[in-house]
Amino acid sequence: MGDRLRGLWDFGDLDTTWQRLSARLDSEPGDTGRAEVLTQLARVHGLRGEFAAGDELVDRAEALAGSVPVVRARVWLERGRLRRSGGDPAAALPLFLGAYEAARADADASAPFVAVDAAHMVALVQPEAADRRAWTRTALEQARSSADAEVRRWQGSLLNNLGWDLLEAGEPDAALDAFRQALAQRLAHPDSPALVPIARYAVAKALRLLGRPAEALPELETAVAESAAPDGWLYEELALSYALAGRDADAAAPARQALELLPGCDPAFAADSARTDPLHRLAGR
């Protein structure tokens, strides 16, 4: 079952998503159903950076939600996402917590999916790294124990988030374990092939930081071959792993590709000499 509205989403095509949700809004027979759809239309506004318009739709949804816990959870969840995307994670945190508690209290079939979504958002706005990891593990435990296949599917995203937090905490071995589990989850769902190269990249980065480039390189080479478009982060990691393996000649081409691609997609890259200098050296510039 999962989220009854999730199938209307295409995160790579917000215009189509808006059209589908608008059509669903017109066909919903009751106020609470319309409220749920309005929260999803508000999320589209949020992804477009249209926060005031998103708030207006959440206000409309709240007026229709009544006392149904999962519907109120959706209202708080999407209002929280608007706050976070608008640059106010502190304001988002109590909204996400409220969404989590409300969804946990509902027996509706969509409630477990919404609860895990809310817990994962609570994790993302925690100011302390240990609290981020704790909430991610809470969400992961609920996803793993669910009888709903769509709820269990959350594991890939949650394990990925946990891995990056562990890497930031200086625990590369634990991060590698999380990333490998995330990759296994991605491979188990071939309907989302774009997520597999990203998962391989994370595994390879942890391996490189552990000083194991011989294991990282096959993952990266496969990821480059699997990617639908050139990816600057993949080429950067590939160049660094070749260099660590003592293969500077092989590192030159991906280093050049990384230097060409990353300024256009990573705003922090050009000013970060710790990243640009090794690539310039490997590229022979």
Rank of each mutant, 00 (worst) to 15 (best):
A251H: 06
V203W: 02
D250S: 14
A216M: 09
P172F: 04
A202I: 00
F179C: 04
E221N: 07
D191C: 01
A243G: 03
I198V: 15
D177G: 07
A216L: 08
P230V: 06
E221V: 13
A202T: 00
V224I: 15
V203K: 05
Y242Q: 05
E215W: 08
L220S: 10
L187C: 01
P197S: 06
L187A: 07
A225I: 07
A206T: 08
V224C: 11
D250N: 11
A252L: 05
A169V: 04
L217C: 01
L167V: 08
A194Y: 00
G246R: 07
A202K: 11
D250I: 02
A184S: 09
E237T: 10
S227V: 05
A249V: 13
L217T: 02
A194K: 00
P197I: 07
A204Y: 09
E171F: 06
A182E: 00
K205V: 15
G211V: 03
A194V: 10
S227I: 06
L209P: 02
V196T: 15
Y235K: 03
L183K: 03
P172R: 02
Y201N: 15
A249H: 08
H189T: 10
Q181E: 15
D177Q: 12
S241Y: 09
Y235T: 01
S241E: 10
A182D: 06
A223L: 07
V224H: 08
R212A: 14
T222Q: 15
W233C: 01
W233A: 14
D173K: 11
E215C: 07
K205F: 14
V203R: 02
E237W: 05
P197W: 07
D191R: 08
R208W: 04
E219M: 12
D231G: 03
G246M: 09
R180M: 11
A174T: 10
Y242P: 00
A182L: 04
A175G: 09
I198Q: 13
G170Q: 05
R208V: 14
L210T: 03
L238C: 11
A251T: 03
L167N: 06
L220P: 09
A243H: 14
A229N: 10
A206G: 12
R208F: 03
E237Q: 15
Y235S: 13
K205N: 12
L244M: 13
P193C: 01
A206R: 11
A252C: 09
Y201W: 15
L183Q: 06
D173T: 14
I198T: 14
V224L: 12
S241I: 09
S241N: 11
A194D: 15
L234G: 05
A175S: 14
